[in-house]
Design a protein around this nucleic acid. Structure first.
Length: 535
DNA sequence: CTAGGGTTAG
């Protein structure tokens, strides 16, 4: 009966059942009962019940049971009480491998990766799962580089790698946009006969799609025999990100035909697919179908997608009406989508309004200021541009520095705006000069509007030359052989000038350039971009 | 066979 309940879809009900055992006169709870109670508590995530269960564990003398111990460590971390996890752990006279791993994972999940690493280093023995816990701890904290470094240490140590390891390592490659290393992992999986589970296949699809190799992503997708909602959603998201909105929607139809029910995340991909190709009405229908057909409550991100859908298509009136009709309080994402639409379509008044709403919600939202100042700059309203700058200074808002990453020979190189710290910077500088000469020869005039500050034209052009993606592209041109596409991953959106310049570079240098920005992909080839300047 | 630690999509 207990086992039946452990797989119950309703934690609440199981919880009641266990409580009956706990308080029944004829039945005495054993360590199994407590183990399940603790784990169910973790699922329903209720701090009060957690505390009372812990008290009952102590009362019945099961504190020393290893299964219960690791469960409690896990539970407190999930409830947000890492200190309690730690104090349980530190009181254990002889914590076993599983409890140690649970503690490492608890720290990592609570954002204390460095403490996790200290514990990990102190472990007298580490099995593959312990390594996986630490590697995924880095990945989930956005420290992908360290994740990869640890993976290499794992191999040096001769520890057996399994599919869980590969999933985390692929996830690290995905975040870094490190296609070479991702490809290497794929080969490694095949050579070492690592079991191709649904999870691993999905991680591969996500990696290829987000590293700009959509063809390979879809190849893996079609080859997978077993697919779940994650698999379908990853593929659909990959298509949407790469501008293939129609194919994304076709896949959605196929998914439904195969009888896989979509979930909330799937609809984010569907709506993004509609948005990239401007299928406004179809997107709106999908949004409405969420609750009507699938019983899924649209969440803030879905509302944001619809605002984006209307906004990008230039239907600003519909966008603002939609925001005003939202049954929940619009979040920064909705206003941000509207603001972005105002920038694309040059609507000053609505843009001012949207950015005010945005700042009210998030005082330190740098995007609100930057985009607003870009809107003013587009209309050459330099006084307002400088006002926004002053405002940012007064409010202590700092613009997140742009950063572009490029992988060369399996090594990841990172460039910030105006970054001169790279060991080969002098060569890069020469290349940048050459690029700007060749661009001018081809009739290019810098689009200096996106520069935030009202500096002199010449300086502006200089600042534009230093945008991180340009530096990264210059480095790509000198370090990658002809014919090899240059792949860049950027943390922010590409600016209009960089977009123009990259198009021309792709033509003048006859080089394919693939840029993943914060939102989507731009495939530059022969002077054109796959986004058709609609982004 | 049967309880515990790790792994995928916005």
């Amino acid at each position: 009966m207990i086992r039946a309940h452990s797989k119950s879809p309703s934690p609440q009900r199981s919880f009641h059942f266990y409580n009956q055992i706990l308080h029944s006169q004829n039945l005495s709870p054993d360590n199994y009962t407590f183990n399940f109670l603790v784990r169910t508590c973790t699922q329903i995530s209720s701090p009060e019940t957690g505390l009372s269960i812990h008290a009952a564990v102590i009362k019945h003398g099961f504190e020393t049971d290893p299964h219960v111990q690791s469960g409690l460590i896990h539970m407190y971390a999930e409830l947000g009480f890492l200190d309690s996890s730690l104090s349980i752990f530190l009181k254990l006279p002889d914590p076993d491998l599983v409890s140690q791993t649970a503690m490492v994972s608890a720290c990592a999940k609570s954002g204390e990766v460095d403490i996790a690493r200290e514990l990990f280093d102190k472990m007298p023995f580490r099995d593959p799962i312990a390594w996986n816990a630490m590697i995924s701890g880095y990945t989930q904290s956005g420290r992908s580089r360290e994740a990869l470094r640890l993976f290499h240490l794992m191999q040096i140590d001769g520890v057996k790698v399994n599919e869980g390891t590969m999933v985390s390592v692929l996830s690290a490659c995905t975040h870094l946009g490190a296609l070479d290393q991702g490809r290497w992992v794929h080969v490694y999986i095949e050579r070492n006969n690592i079991r191709m589970t649904v999870t691993l296949g999905t991680a591969l699809i996500d990696m290829y799609a987000k590293c700009g190799n959509l063809g390979k992503a879809m190849e893996v997708f079609w080859r997978m025999r077993e697919k779940n909602v994650y698999t379908w959603t990853s593929a659909m998201n990959g298509l949407a990100m790469n501008g293939a909105g129609k194919e994304c929607l076709e896949l959605f139809d196929l998914m439904k035909q195969e009888g896989v029910p979509p979930n909330e995340v799937t609809f984010v991909s569907v709506l993004r697919g509609c948005s990239v190709v401007g299928l406004v009405e179809e997107g709106r229908e999908h949004f409405d179908s969420m609750s009507i057909v699938y019983g899924l409550e649209p969440r803030l991100e879905h509302y944001g997608c619809v605002v984006d859908l209307y906004g990008r298509a230039g239907r600003l009136e519909d966008a603002i009406n939609f925001i005003n009709s939202m049954p929940i309080k619009p979040h920064a994402g909705a206003w941000g989508a509207l603001l972005n639409a105002c920038k694309i379509h040059g609507n000053l008044k609505l843009g001012e309004f949207a950015s005010r709403e945005l700042v009210e919600l998030e005082l330190k939202n740098d995007g609100a200021y930057v985009v607003l100042s870009n809107i003013y700059a587009d209309s050459r309203n330099w006084d307002e541009v400088s006002n926004v700058r002053k405002l940012m200074k007064n409010e202590g808002v700092k613009k997140v520095p742009g950063c572009s990453v490029i992988e060369v020979n399996g090594e990841v190189h990172e460039f910030f705006v105006g970054d001169k710290t790279h060991p080969r910077y002098s060569e890069i500088e020469v290349k940048l000069g050459e690029i700007s000469r060749r661009l001018r020869l081809s009739g290019y005039v810098a689009n200096t509007n996106p520069v935030l500050f009202d500096i002199e034209e010449e300086e502006k052009e200089d600042a534009l030359c230093r945008h991180s993606e340009k530096v990264a592209i210059a480095f790509g041109l000198i370090s990658l052989d002809e014919g090899i596409p240059i792949r860049i991953v950027k943390n922010l959106r590409v600016c209009g000038d960089c977009h123009d310049v990259t198009k021309i570079i792709s033509k003048v240098y006859n080089r394919e350039i693939i840029v993943r920005d914060r939102n989507r992909f731009h495939h530059f080839k022969n002077g054109d971009c796959s986004c058709r300047d609609y982004w």
